[in-house]
Write a protein that binds this DNA or RNA. Sequence first.
DNA 1: ACTCCCGGGACTGCCCGTTCAT
DNA 2: ATGAACGGGCAGTCCCGGGAGT
Lengths: 226, 226, 226, 226
Amino acid sequence: MTKQARALATRELIIQAAAQSFERFGYSSTSLSDIVAQASVTRGALYFHFTSKQELASAVIEAQHERSVAAAKVMVEGSEPGLESVIRLSAEFAEQLLTDPVVRAGIRLTLENGTFEAPVPDPYREWIRATSELLTRAAKNNDLRGNLDPEAISWYVVASFTGVQMVSHILSQRADLYARLADMWDVLLPGLVPSRKLPHFRGVVASCCRDGLPGADRPDLSATSD
Amino acid sequence: MTKQARALATRELIIQAAAQSFERFGYSSTSLSDIVAQASVTRGALYFHFTSKQELASAVIEAQHERSVAAAKVMVEGSEPGLESVIRLSAEFAEQLLTDPVVRAGIRLTLENGTFEAPVPDPYREWIRATSELLTRAAKNNDLRGNLDPEAISWYVVASFTGVQMVSHILSQRADLYARLADMWDVLLPGLVPSRKLPHFRGVVASCCRDGLPGADRPDLSATSD
Amino acid sequence: MTKQARALATRELIIQAAAQSFERFGYSSTSLSDIVAQASVTRGALYFHFTSKQELASAVIEAQHERSVAAAKVMVEGSEPGLESVIRLSAEFAEQLLTDPVVRAGIRLTLENGTFEAPVPDPYREWIRATSELLTRAAKNNDLRGNLDPEAISWYVVASFTGVQMVSHILSQRADLYARLADMWDVLLPGLVPSRKLPHFRGVVASCCRDGLPGADRPDLSATSD
Amino acid sequence: MTKQARALATRELIIQAAAQSFERFGYSSTSLSDIVAQASVTRGALYFHFTSKQELASAVIEAQHERSVAAAKVMVEGSEPGLESVIRLSAEFAEQLLTDPVVRAGIRLTLENGTFEAPVPDPYREWIRATSELLTRAAKNNDLRGNLDPEAISWYVVASFTGVQMVSHILSQRADLYARLADMWDVLLPGLVPSRKLPHFRGVVASCCRDGLPGADRPDLSATSD
DNA sequence: ACTCCCGGGACTGCCCGTTCAT
DNA sequence: ATGAACGGGCAGTCCCGGGAGT
């Protein structure tokens, strides 16, 4: 029992260390030496828990997958009105990205997908599905303008969030993620909700995404990039 | 002269071959062996034109950068109203992504950025700047709802396009890119333009993004990913 | 008692499994993982019985050694005329090779000897000695032509059998071993025994080595080897 | 040209070094580090000439194969009577084994065959074929007793030589190889040739195999092996 | 001016034989 | 007799120069 607990801890330690390296360097630029050094374990220990680098990467992805869909599940099973949930969910993902290296690594690994031949679970389908569910609920609640297709919007909301997060990553290491997320909803909401409910949802966005964060300025465009 | 022409052709050939490999495998999983095999040149030839793998990757990025900003420049220097230009520009980028391996490779390499220590030009700032320019023009033209900040919208439009392109890549190898891009504008436009002009811009989107494309269906969400 | 019996059974099981791997892959290409998988025991169990891979290999060799000298001992202590015994002994060895993986593994490990620094018992001296003993008896029985040196013949008979067995192994996986062994005696006997006794010994060979075996054809030489 | 000569020399150097290690340790106990150290070349040089350890081993085997069949070919194409050629051939092989590490390594690698999945050329078929050719000639020359089957004898002669060489290797590191080879023919000839020609062939054997060699004594059997 | 053969090392991912606490 | 961890070493192969050749 004690043994197994310790083994599990080691396993978790390795995943954490791997996540940090994968996040920084990507899959193939990360060497197992990096990981074992980070985790302060020996190669043998690593090999005991994961028989290949590939398997280790998959474990990281799986861990991220779990956490992400867990957050979505909480929302879907909750009783909050649909659109509020979607907004909160986007903020929740933002927080995961900012606080959890495993999530960041998982996202990066998923995007580098081409490297893997083995099909790894990609979270995008799940996110779109969850969002779709919530937006359907919102439509029943009359929180969505008529003539909008919940499925099309769901796909786009997920893609949009993905882009916001990535560009924020590239241009500011995600320092301005919350602010950019708020901008995203500012632009989106008027097209999504009936005018009379706009103030309400603006409030929801404000409560989720504007918790007195630093780095809210958009990047200075006058600086050339090279 | 003949020699130099031939040399230039070889250089271009190598860049093409490199782009194809970089696109598929990413920077560090691509070996120079892959590239020389693809291009049917010897290692020596490659080494003559590019003194390192790093430099070769930079050349690919630079080539993509050139093509992308060239497209933007055409729009900025054109006389077409601002918002139309932004829409057309997004379609133009979509086409580049679908037809030009160098562009796809450049995008991927830019995203993998962490791998490089050398600063490579990132195109996002340029795109945001160009978009901002165009949207300011649109505002003067009264094509934008009042109270909208062109800068915030520009940032978001670029990020949004990035996300659309990436998620389309992940879920359908970009087969449905045009359709998803049209969906994006469908969601965005109502929040951006005065109601009376909405039909007009819907038409612009339709003319750019709906050229009878296959693969327009959104992915089947009922299929689990693993 | 029960415990010890079980322990002994485990030990034997491991030796069997090890023999099968050693026979197929040789000493150093065989991994302990192979063996523990084959034997369905844990690494720990293996290390309880044998403190090193080396020792395990030695145990296999020892087991083979035992069985081989046991057969020889039976003959030496028996009362059958000398040359008959030698012939029967060769057939007995052939059967051991065909039926007992431990014997095959032991032979292979002995030949790879260079790998070991520790001196392992080699059975060749014993076999030569036993044969020598039996042939001396045959000489006293006037079954050997005059002027033959029993020692020289013994050495050669053992070497000859070794070669027959090995070439049969290489060219037919030992499928034609009995037939080739009969051929060997066919060639040897005329030089060894007085002419008048030749028919008798031919009969002995026939009774030992021609039990209606398949695969008796010599290999097709017209087929090139590559 | 100069370059190519240098390259060829390097290649040969590597094969020599590999042969020495393979001979001593066998295929899988030999590490590439051993070989590059022996040859004083870098791994890069080795990798340029041979893309895998397997391929290097095959090159060694091939080199040995060449030399062995070359010797056989000389005999087959010569005009000497058949049986004399066979005897001389056996002596020639003995000399190759004693003087040429590549031959010794090739033999060892061929025997360890099980390790390789790729079919490597085995020389045994060729040797049997050549011997068969020569013995058929001998039969026509009335140097063979009637009723003997040249094919059966050929197979056996090759196997017998193999065994002699191996047991000599095991028991004396081949120090007594010539002497044991002479013993072999001493035992074999009476059964092979007509009595009246026996003295002649005894002379042939003597001229080939008794060049004043050390280590001619048979091993001391009284010493136990462990 | 340009191409390429040949070689140089430094890693990488893998996996092996072993031990220690339980 | 087990599960977990230990290090070291394996084969492979990568990215890169230097010098001859065209």
